[in-house]
Design a protein around this nucleic acid. Structure first.
Length: 488
RNA sequence: GGUCCCUUCGUCUAACGGUUAGGACGCCAGGUUCUCAUCCUGGUAACAGGAGUUCGAUUCUCCUAGGGACUACCA
């Protein structure tokens, strides 16, 4: 609101999510998108999607579209991006090549960067020699002091080149990370890394800086694997004479077993995997946001809408978090229980079909999913937890016994129950009516609940553990219930 | 090897020099209940180690250890 006083042309926070389109959406990427989104929204800002496709080798076709789709399922949407447009476009880096060349030429003219004609073979040899001498592998700056004439001669001769950043030879580079504070690097430790590859395509290090500046990004959120190149990036901003945005290096997510950066080899790492298993977007969001962020209160259940208001940089930590799905399961069963039966059923449908279930009768299916609701950790469990409703499992007669009850007694109790149940007609065959009628009847004859309800439940379900006999009887219907009772 | 980051219950974390070190998940026990699940109650469990600074350190500094990242014409 004070922007007019200071003459800032734009004080609206602008953040970006800048993935590489290399396949499925990694959990780490989801969290990066989430934090970017929340940081933007909590400040009333915008989130921009920028596709960093400068590595042609790793690019996967369709990855951009699927990434946008998955993010949308998660509830995360952008304000600008390749699919939306915006006045800072294009939002795909390979479509910005002219821009990068313009800026690298500028730096070239100013002597802030230089052309390097070293061959891959020479570079490899050089590195091997350095490693053999236990030195840090680093470009030896052979081309750094090539004269303009020498360079031009090489270009004329058709030699390929890359453009490298000229690092200061001595002194310190102080950088500031919003989560960690000041970090000091010695310039001498910095490598003259490649900014423009020989094919004329920029590296991440260059495109990222140019784009963040041109797109007027105010806060850069990225994984802390970028901390090492942070000083080089800051130096680039200085070379251009630009004010860098604020940087927030988010701590990494680590594998539960074996440690290390969350990786495919050690379990499911893609959002698509979790969605397919039947984890709900809201559970994934709630779980991920608490990996590295903590609210002012101890509130554990968060919706995206609440997070958009309450999220803040102050709650973010700098230490890495292990990805342990035990709590994800908790959140998922929690959100599953919050669903209405109709919603839950709709969500279960694809999984029931997959399990080969007949879902023709929606009302009946709803009764089945209702029975499973309190018992599901993921949607994909719906088939297994409702199996007994579709087909009575084979069970040992012994199972019908309850505590000190003999098999004979159980049989008698069942027979009496059956004749009572037969008195209940189709219209009254509901969970509540059944429960009321049978419980009063048991009380009336002075019996113990367990003596009757256990055998009844086993007769209906064939299982040691299951929902209550009344719920099951209701879901099964009068005909099937009595049939199963007869069998018993 | 070099550079940088991180370090509180098993896990996610709170604490911004003074607390019986709090919450959640997990686990255990009890209650409700015919069983399971849900739900309720309770319990278990942590300041990595060592030096400083300070009247006082989980909190600040340094060292060590452990973990992690980077060290590509990949991001």
């Amino acid at each position: 609101m004070f922007s007019f006083l200071f003459g800032h042309k734009n004080t609206k926070p602008r953040l970006r999510f800048a993935p590489s389109p290399t396949g499925f959406l990694h959990i780490g990427s989801l969290r990066a998108a989430l934090f970017g989104y929340l940081l933007a929204k909590s400040q009333g800002g915008d989130l921009i999607l920028r596709i960093e496709d400068t590595d042609q080798k790793r690019e996967v076709t369709g990855a951009t579209e699927s990434l946008i789709k998955v993010l949308k399922i998660m509830g995360l949407e952008f304000d600008e991006g390749p699919h939306l447009g915006g006045k800072y476009g294009p939002y795909i880096q390979t479509q910005r090549l002219d821009i990068y060349h313009e800026y690298s030429d500028k730096l070239l003219a100013e002597g802030k960067v230089y052309r390097c004609f070293c061959s891959e073979e020479r570079l490899t040899e050089m590195r091997e020699a350095q490693e053999a001498k236990k030195e840090a592998p680093r470009y030896d700056r052979l081309c750094r002091d090539l004269s303009v004439a020498e360079a031009e001669a090489k270009i004329k001769a058709g030699e390929k080149f890359v453009i490298r950043q000229k690092m200061p030879l001595n002194g310190e580079v102080k950088v500031y990370d919003e989560l960690r504070g000041e970090i000091i690097f010695k310039a001498a430790d910095l490598d003259d890394h490649v900014l423009i590859k020989s094919a004329g395509i920029p590296t991440y290090q260059f495109a990222n800086v140019v784009d963040d500046h041109l797109m007027e990004i105010t806060q850069v959120t990225r994984g802390d694997e970028w901390l090492g190149s942070f000083p080089k990036n800051i130096l680039l901003y200085r070379d251009f004479g630009w004010t860098p945005p604020k940087f927030i290096h988010m701590p990494l997510i680590l594998n539960k077993v074996g440690g290390g950066k969350l990786s495919k080899r050690k379990g499911d790492v893609f959002v698509e995997d979790y969605l397919a298993k039947g984890y709900l977007p809201e559970a994934l969001i709630n779980f991920c946001v608490l990996l590295g962020w903590h609210p002012k209160s101890d509130q554990e259940i968060w919706t995206l809408a609440e997070l958009k208001k309450e999220f803040s940089l102050a709650g973010m930590g700098a230490s890495p978090a292990i990805f342990d799905t035990a709590k994800l399961d908790y959140y998922n069963s929690y959100y599953l229980r919050q669903k209405s039966v109709a919603e839950l059923t709709k969500l279960c449908l694809p999984y029931l079909v997959k399990a080969g279930r007949d879902i023709g009768d929606l009302k009946r299916t709803e009764k089945f999913t209702a029975l499973a609701q309190d018992r599901l950790k993921t949607l994909s469990e719906i088939g297994a937890t409702t199996d007994f409703l579709f087909e009575l499992p084979a069970y040992a007669p012994e199972l019908l016994r309850w505590k000190i009850l003999t098999l004979e007694e159980a049989k008698i109790n069942l027979a009496r129950l059956k004749s009572e149940l037969e008195k209940i007609n189709e219209g009254n065959w509901t969970k509540d009516r059944l429960e009321k009628t049978i419980l009063t009847w048991i009380k009336g004859i002075g019996g113990q609940n367990g003596d009757y309800l256990w055998p009844l439940r086993v007769a209906l379900t064939g299982l040691k553990n299951s929902p209550s006999p009344f719920e099951v009887a209701d879901a099964l219907g009068r005909g099937e219930s009595l049939r199963r009772l007869n069998l018993a």
